[in-house]
Design a protein around this nucleic acid. Sequence first.
DNA 1: ATTGAAATATGTTCGTA
DNA 2: TACGAACATATTTCAAT
Lengths: 156, 156
Amino acid sequence: MKIVNESVVIDGIDKTILNFLMENAKKSILEIAKNIGITGAAVHQRLRKLEKAGLIEGSKLMINPRVIGYKTMAFVGIYLDKAISNPQAVKQLSEIPEVIECHYTTGNWSIFLKILCRDNEHLMHVLNKDIQAIKGVSRTETFVSLDQQIKRQIKI
Amino acid sequence: MKIVNESVVIDGIDKTILNFLMENAKKSILEIAKNIGITGAAVHQRLRKLEKAGLIEGSKLMINPRVIGYKTMAFVGIYLDKAISNPQAVKQLSEIPEVIECHYTTGNWSIFLKILCRDNEHLMHVLNKDIQAIKGVSRTETFVSLDQQIKRQIKI
DNA sequence: ATTGAAATATGTTCGTA
DNA sequence: TACGAACATATTTCAAT
C-alpha cells in the first residue's frame, strides 16, 4: 500500500525506517536494514529521499525537564485586543523562554500557549510579568497540567 | 554557575553539549567538542554522566506531519463523569492514534488533549466516533490550531 | 531501487595525567 | 575531569545490476 501526498510517495519500508527513527533517532542504519532485510546502503538512500521530500524536520535530543527543575507545565489562552497585530504579540512571546508552544487558534482565545515553568511561583511570574506586559494582551486563562499521560508523535 | 537538582549537577559545558544536541541530535560529538574546546572523549564522558542522571530521555526523529497529509491540529477539553476513573479513560484514549498528548488538568476540563488529524472531516470523526465513544466522556470542547508559530524545547 | 565493497567519519574505551 | 591513541562501528559513496 502506498500513500501519495504532495509528491511524496511513502511505502511500507519507508514507514518502518521512519517509525524506528522516530522512536530512537540514534538507531543505526545497519540495524534497521537488518530488521527489514535490505542493505544499509538502501536504507541510507531512502532516508536521503525522505529528507529531500521535506518529510524529515530533523532530530532532537529529548531531555526530561523535571530533572533540571522544570516541573510545572501550563496552558494559557490569551485574549488579544482587536487592534493589536497577532505577529507583533507572537514576536514578543517568542522572547519568553518558558513559552514552548504558541498557536493561533479558533474559538474565544486568539493565542494559545504551552509554557513550562519551574514551579507555581515561577508560573505566576511568567503570567503576571512577562505575558501581561505584552501590548494587546487583555486577559489570560490558565490551566495547569497535573500529569501528562500521553506524549508521542503521530504513527505513520 | 552550577545548577543542582535532584542530585544532578550541570555546568556550562554540559549545557552547551545538551543545547547542541537538543537542536540536532545527530550533531557529532567531535564537532561539539571542537566548539567547546575539549576532546571528543570528554564530551562523550559527560554525555554518559547526563544519561545516567536520567536527564536524557532519548532522541527522536522529527517528521513534518503535513507532508504525509496530517494538516489539522486541535486541542480538546474533556468533561468526564465523576463516576468514571481517569485511568480508564486515558487507557482508551491511548488507543486513538490521533491523540498525541493527554493531560490531566486543573480547571473545568478533566482531561485535555492535543490531537492531529488529516483534515476537518477526519477531526469530526475522531471527536464524534472515537472520543465520544469512551465511557464517562460527557462533553468535549474543541479548538483548532490554525497556525503554530512557536515549537521548541525549554532552553537549558 | 538495491547491492557489496571501499573510503571516510564517528563513537567508544582505556591508560595516564 | 580531561587527554590522546587505539579500536570498534557507522555512515557515505559508487560502480554495477
